[in-house]
Design a protein around this nucleic acid. Structure first.
Length: 258
DNA sequence: ATGTCACTTTACAAGTGA
C-alpha cells in the first residue's frame, strides 16, 4: 500500500502536478493540504478522471484539506472536536479499508512572539486530546509546521527556539508520540538528517539545501510494523516543463506491506 | 536571512499569509 501527503500550496495552481503525481506513483491514498479553494471549486472532474474518489474540507483563499483514494472513503469527518479555530478548514479524516486516515494542516504560528503561536500550541493540544480517543490502525499525516528534532532542520543553531523548531512545539509532537504514534520517516531514516520536505521559496533555499522536515506521517504500532519505506519526491520541488511552478513542499511517500 | 509565491480586494497595486 502506498500513501502520499503533500502540501500543494493551492490545488488550482498545482493541478497538473497533482494529476501527474497520481499517474506516476499510483498511490492508494493522497492527502493534500493548503488546497485554498472552497469545496465547490475543487477540481473534482480531473481527480475522478484519474481514477480517484475524494473528500474535501475546503476554504476560500486559505487552508483547506482533501483526501483522495482509489478505494471508497468511509466515515468521513470534517474538522475535529475541540478545535480552537473551527472556522479554519485544517483537518479531514476518513477510513480506507481498515485504516483510519487523518489529514492535518497545523496552524503555522508565524513566530514565537505572535499571538498565532499560542493558538498553534493550543491547537496541537486539542488535536492530541482528540487523537487520544482513537483506536485501531491509524495514520495521521500532513503539514505539522513543526520540525520534531534538530535532525529535522538544516541549521539547528539558526533555528534554535524559532517558530517551527521551538521546544514547546516539539513537546506537542512528543505528546503525539506518547499516544503510541510513531514518526515513520524518522523510524525509516534513523539518525540521518531529514528527509526534508519543505524549502522556503525565497533566497534559493532549495538549491542551497536549506530544508526542514515539517511534513510528517505518524502511524500506530500496527501500521509501523508494516513500514517498508518513507521517501521524499524531491523532483516535485523543482520546476517542471508543462506542469507549472512547484509547491514549496515536496510529497512524502509511504510504502506499507499489504 | 530572504534570489518567492498565491491569495484577496468595490482591484489594475498593495496587503496578508506562508
Amino acid at each position: 500500500m502506498k500513501v502520499i501527503t503533500w502540501n500543494v500550496n493551492s490545488v488550482r495552481q498545482r493541478l497538473a502536478r497533482v494529476i501527474a503525481l497520481l499517474n506516476r506513483h499510483e498511490p492508494d491514498v493522497l492527502c493534500l493540504q493548503e488546497i485554498k479553494v472552497t469545496d465547490d471549486a475543487f477540481p473534482l472532474m480531473e481527480v475522478t478522471a484519474a481514477g480517484y474518489q475524494c473528500v474535501t474540507h475546503g476554504q476560500k483563499a486559505y487552508n483547506g484539506v482533501a483526501i483522495l483514494a482509489r478505494e471508497p472513503l468511509h466515515d468521513v469527518s470534517l474538522g475535529f472536536r475541540g478545535d480552537p479555530v473551527p472556522e479554519e478548514a485544517r483537518v479531514v479524516s476518513a477510513t480506507v479499508g481498515d485504516l483510519r486516515v487523518v489529514n492535518a494542516y497545523v496552524v503555522n504560528g508565524k513566530s514565537t512572539t505572535d499571538p498565532a503561536y499560542q493558538i498553534k500550541l493550543r491547537w496541537l493540544d486539542a488535536l492530541a486530546d482528540w487523537l487520544a480517543t482513537m483506536a485501531g490502525p491509524l495514520l495521521v499525516m500532513g503539514d505539522f509546521n513543526v520540525a520534531p528534532t534538530d535532525l529535522d532542520v538544516y541549521d539547528p543553531a539558526l533555528w534554535h527556539g524559532q517558530n517551527l523548531a521551538s521546544e514547546p512545539e516539539r513537546e506537542r509532537i512528543r505528546r503525539l508520540e506518547s499516544l503510541g504514534l510513531i514518526d515513520l520517516a524518522r523510524a525509516h531514516a534513523g539518525d540521518t538528517p531529514g528527509p526534508y520536505t519543505y524549502w522556503d521559496y525565497r533566497a534559493g533555499a532549495f538549491h542551497k539545501g536549506w530544508g526542514l522536515r515539517i511534513d510528517l506521517m505518524l502511524g500506530s504500532a500496527d501500521v509501523a510494523a508494516r513500514l517498508v519505506s518513507v521517501e521524499v519526491d524531491r523532483e516535485e520541488r523543482k520546476p517542471t516543463a508543462g506542469e507549472g511552478k512547484p509547491s514549496d513542499h515536496a510529497p512524502l511517500i509511504l510504502t506499507l506491506r499489504d
